[in-house]
């Protein structure tokens, strides 16, 4: 189990390293037309995410990831 986690960590670190090292990634400021649309926002449906996070927090053994995992209600 621990071994798998280390491998996952290294893979992610390498992937992140690749991303930041690669200068061809990204767009010029005048190419942000699509990126600027609200549909492309990471949290494009904040209320849906908020409601979903609350349900899954109450019904499953995991929480967080997208945002903070912490307390907030006695539903778990």
């Amino acid at each position: 189990m621990q071994y798998k986690k280390i491998i996952a960590g290294i893979t992610l670190a390498l992937l992140l390293g690749q991303l930041s090292a690669c200068s061809s990634l990204g767009v010029k400021p005048w190419e942000r037309d699509i990126m600027a649309k609200e549909e492309m926002a990471l949290n494009s449906a904040p209320l849906d995410n908020r409601l979903d996070d609350h349900i899954y927090f109450s019904k499953e053994g995991s929480s967080g990831g997208r945002s903070f995992a912490g307390g907030g209600c006695g539903c778990n």
């Binding site: 992610l12 990634l25 699509i34 990831g65």
Partner: peptide
Amino acid sequence: LDMLLGLTQVINRDWLMQFNYSLS
């Protein structure tokens, strides 16, 4: 106590990526 480390990267004009590590 929660901590969240995030990296957001625009890949190209049509692709946005996010990585988070969080500790609680």
